[in-house]
Amino acid sequence: MSRKSDRAVSRRQFLLGAGMASAGSIALAGCTEQGGTPTDGESSLSGEFRMTGSSTVYPLAVEVVNQFENEHSNVNIPINRTGSGGGFSNHFCVGNSVINNASRPITEGEQQQCGENDVTPHEIKVASDAVTVIVNGDNDWVDCMTVDQLGQIWREGGAQNWSDVDPSWPDEPINRFGAATTSGTFDYFKETIVGEDTNHTSEYSATERDNEILAGVQRDQYAIGYFGFAYYADNQDVVKAVSIDNGDGCVEPSLENARSGEYQPLSRPLFTYVAEGALEREEVAEFCRFFVEQSTNQDLVADTVGYVPNTEDERERELQELNDTIESVQ
């Protein structure tokens, strides 16, 4: 069986398989001519470049690379899930990868580190997400939580038992599963739920692997966790999503509510960053164009992965800015 047909798996198989894979890179291949379609059935591009970063963006990036390689076969793109921050600090900003996926914007400190190593990041918005809070399927006391209640659970020195949040809830320990500190999801959740001036609790099971969060919550009636919507969307039969009350009533996490802006404060943009210097290479430039072009693909972004696609206006803006940068370096 061919390498490509080996990867023709369902989204559920992909998410579970990806979560169970080792931390080593998954080598993928792909390439495209400008505009995304080869002119003669055979790509003239070749080369290899590395992609690191966000576990949230990871399933989308893998799907894009798979489509990219279905058109061309001579460009290899190994992908590592390192977390947004881990990808920036350990790989992208020191020149060990040329693309870094991120579930939050690059920080000033990361930009400074990149600058010290002559790496200039170019930001590309590739989709939007709804960070999803999950509880065990047998949890019959929580369907909706306020931002303040979530803050009590996830801040340092906060609630220890469910009854500490609401006296009518069980007097049982809260068992937490969440993103590691190198994760952009951790950064975003801390900022929006815990608060910039308050520490996120360290009393939780932290991981870069969303399937481990899912498994932890699935096996524990008193557990709670959070991760990107895509990992919930394909596992709605084994865990329960918590609606969020941001002051205007309970709103469930969904692509529609994220798209409309009703799901607050946990709707967020997703990014990929490419080193401007690497855009001198045609294979890197064409892959980035392809990623932008696929960002409005409803079948891929929403139906296959589970994120909100870019609008046509967003795609055109991102493509124009990307092409301007490519022109300036080539």
Rank of each mutant, 00 (worst) to 15 (best):
Q149M: 08
N139W: 08
I134A: 02
G158F: 04
G158D: 05
G151N: 15
Q152F: 05
E123L: 05
V126M: 08
R155D: 00
D148Y: 05
G158H: 06
T146L: 04
E123N: 05
I134K: 02
I134Y: 02
E156R: 07
Q113M: 11
E156D: 14
M145H: 07
D118I: 02
D138P: 13
K125D: 00
D129L: 01
E123G: 00
S128F: 10
Q149H: 08
H122P: 00
E108S: 14
D140V: 10
V131D: 11
G151L: 06
T107V: 08
T146C: 03
G137R: 15
T120C: 01
E156H: 07
N117T: 08
N136P: 10
I124S: 00
L150Q: 06
G158A: 05
D129H: 06
W141E: 12
M145C: 08
W141S: 08
V147K: 05
W154Y: 13
I124V: 15
S128T: 09
D118C: 01
N139K: 08
D148F: 04
G109E: 14
V142N: 10
T146K: 04
C144F: 07
Q149T: 09
D148S: 13
G151F: 07
S128D: 11
V119I: 15
M145K: 07
V131H: 06
V119H: 03
G109N: 14
D140T: 15
Q152D: 12
R155M: 10
A127D: 08
G157K: 03
C144V: 09
D140E: 15
G158P: 03
V135C: 07
T107S: 15
D138K: 15
C144K: 08
K125C: 01
T132I: 14
N136I: 12
S128N: 10
A130S: 13
G109S: 13
E110V: 09
P121F: 10
G137N: 14
H122F: 12
S128Y: 11
D140Y: 04
E116R: 12
W141P: 01
Q149C: 07
D138F: 13
G158W: 04
D143A: 09
I134H: 01
D129I: 03
Q112M: 02
H122C: 01
E116D: 13
V119L: 05
L150S: 04
G115K: 10
T107I: 12
W141F: 15
G151A: 09
G109A: 14
V133M: 11
G157R: 03
E123T: 13
D140K: 13
C144W: 09
D148G: 05
R155V: 04
E123R: 15
G137Y: 05
L150Y: 10
T120S: 11
R155A: 03
D118M: 03
E116H: 06
W154A: 00
Q113N: 08
Q111L: 10
N139D: 11
E123M: 14
T146F: 06
D143V: 03
T132V: 13
I153Q: 02
G151K: 12
G158E: 05
W154C: 00
Q113W: 03
G115V: 01
R155N: 10
N136H: 15
E156C: 01
